[in-house]
Design a protein around this nucleic acid. Structure first.
Length: 497
RNA sequence: GCCCUCUUCGUCUAGCCAGGUCAAGGACACCAGCCUUUCACGUUGGUAACGCGGGUUCAAAUCCCGCAGAGGGUACCA
């Protein structure tokens, strides 16, 4: 493994909502890059958007990152040499940068009103240029300033586009030159005095000694603006790596709610586990070789490299996530799997919030009976509901398929009597007695097993039938069979209604 | 419109930089068989891709040019 302790990276979300999938991948890649190089991973909150940033979002992002296991070395909650790590608390620091820019004539005050600006924008567009500002206030005289101030106009601060092209060197995308003509004098401080993202982001990257900026490709255009600012400051710029976008469908659209859940928190609620999500995310744009799909965190850390990240966007395919989720749930030992599943049983009202420890062994047996069927933790309810409650229906389709042919009442009665006669009600005995019974009948096993399944669980899928019988116990098993036997004569009446 | 970027099976990707071993490999999904008390799992097999057009070369998925398509940006958002 390469070791370069001077590597410093950051994940800098804006707290305007939950942590979404794309953000989680960006965080993961930064985290892996830092771990791989023995460097430092910083969590910074870029909350310069006063309108949309909220405390709740900040907390949600922290929670999601922690749930994923992406702990940070420096940041609001853990400290570090560059506190504070929340941009809204760093205004004083940016002031220094703004002064520098202004004093060296690399930035200037602009008094244009929103109306004037939109006119300029329209004009530029009519001429097929993409600049929305024309440098109108670049060369204001002292007199102009006084006049505007007297009118009560509050100025913004704009950075001056240099004459030379901006060179953007990207570790993933390669090198591009951005002509001054396709850049414009960006606003870096709002008229209310609030510094804007493109200033604060690069200022903090410089300030915090960030060596590599790894972020989504949606920031590609911002990078040239930020390099322009850093150049004006004569500051050393970090290296950049833009991650291709995470897309929502094969049409190549950016991932959005229309394509299903987009937040990490929603996937947690849906019963996905962090190991699966991490493994899924790391393979979105990155690969180790031509065949490795499953990687442990250590595998990822040992092998992670920016050079193996592709250039094109990746579609978020939930089927792949489900496959990984099933895989990682299986890797959980019974105790862990049981613990993981408990909140979902509680959520679905099958288990008391304060269930007793005595129930734990029984719970574990139920979870064990489910075997490898869980795609998500939330699936536990589907497979085990009938263990917890008698309140279940028989699906009409199953009823029609298994209870309307032959003589199900006789078949079930026979099975019931067989079970009733058993003294040692254990798995081996139950299994052998039932099999003896099956062998005596002249119908296919399935014709007995499925009606029994329906009687006991209301379903024709799920755990091993003999295990279900044992977990339910003799008494409940018998009464549920009787319940179905009583139900069968009413079937025709029901369908007639 | 303008600027920037991208383009291998339906999806994630390997291969591309250092052209031949690629009549393109793996995985998810899908389909079929096997296994089986159900559903899953597992297992065996199958369908399926180098966006298009030029060029360079003995040879191009790989290099060059053009086109098309897609994405991102174009804010006193990030």
């Amino acid at each position: 493994m390469e070791t370069n302790s001077s590597v410093r990276v950051r994940f800098a979300p804006s707290p305007t909502g939950f942590l979404h999938i794309g953000g989680a991948r960006t965080a993961l890649f930064n985290w892996l890059f830092a771990k791989h190089h023995g460097g430092t991973y910083i969590l910074r909150i870029d909350d310069t958007d006063e309108q949309r940033s909220t405390q709740e979002s900040m907390q949600q992002i922290y929670d999601s990152l922690k749930w994923l296991g992406l702990d940070w070395d420096e940041g609001e909650t853990v400290g570090g040499d560059y506190q504070p790590y929340v941009q809204s608390q760093r205004r004083k620091i940016y002031q220094k940068y703004i002064q520098n820019l202004l004093e060296n004539d690399n930035a200037y005050y602009c008094y244009c009103t929103p109306e004037e600006l939109s006119q300029i924008r329209e004009h530029a567009r009519a001429e097929n240029r993409n600049q929305s500002y024309n440098g109108k206030c670049r060369n204001l005289t002292e007199k102009d300033h006084r006049k505007f101030e007297a009118e009560g106009r509050k100025p913004t601060v704009r950075i001056k586009v240099p004459n030379q092209p901006i060179l953007v060197q990207d570790l993933i995308l390669g090198e591009t030159q951005i002509a001054p003509s396709s850049l414009q004098d960006e606003v870096i401080v709002k008229s209310n005095g609030a510094p804007l993202y493109n200033l604060t982001s690069i200022a903090d990257d410089i300030e915090m000694q960030v060596t590599h900026v790894i972020r989504g490709a949606d920031h590609l255009n911002n990078t040239s603006k930020q390099i322009m600012i850093a150049n004006a400051l004569s500051a050393k710029i970090p290296q950049f790596a833009h991650l291709p976008m995470v897309l929502g469908s094969s049409k190549g659209e950016k991932l959005s709610k229309r394509h299903g859940a987009t937040s990490v928190d929603q996937y947690r609620k849906d019963g996905f586990i962090p190991e699966a999500l991490i493994n899924f995310l790391v393979r979105l744009g990155w690969s180790l070789d031509d065949k490795t799909e499953i990687l442990s965190i250590n595998d990822m850390i040992d092998n992670f490299s920016l050079s193996r990240i592709g250039k094109s966007g990746s579609v978020f395919d939930v089927k792949r996530l489900e496959w990984l989720n099933n895989h990682y749930i299986l890797k959980l030992n019974l105790a862990k799997r049981t613990s993981a599943v408990i909140p979902f049983l509680q959520r679905d009202g099958l288990l008391e919030d304060n269930f007793s420890n005595e129930e734990r062994p029984w719970l574990e047996k139920i979870v064990e009976s489910v075997g490898d069927r869980l795609t998500t933790l939330a699936d536990i309810t589907t497979y085990t509901k009938f263990f917890f409650t008698d309140d279940f229906d028989y699906h009409p389709k199953d009823v029609k398929k298994w209870l309307t042919k032959g003589d199900p009442v006789a078949v079930l009665s026979g099975a019931r009597d067989t079970l009733l006669a058993i003294e040692n009600f254990d798995l081996d005995t139950v299994e052998s007695k039932i099999k003896d019974y099956l062998n005596k009948l002249e119908i296919k096993r399935i014709q007995v097993m499925q009606p029994l399944r329906l009687a006991l669980s209301g379903q024709t899928f799920g755990p091993d039938l003999f295990t279900i019988i044992i977990l339910l116990g003799q008494e409940k098993t018998i009464s549920r069979i009787n319940r179905l036997i009583d139900y069968i004569p009413t079937i025709n009446k029901r369908s007639a209604n």
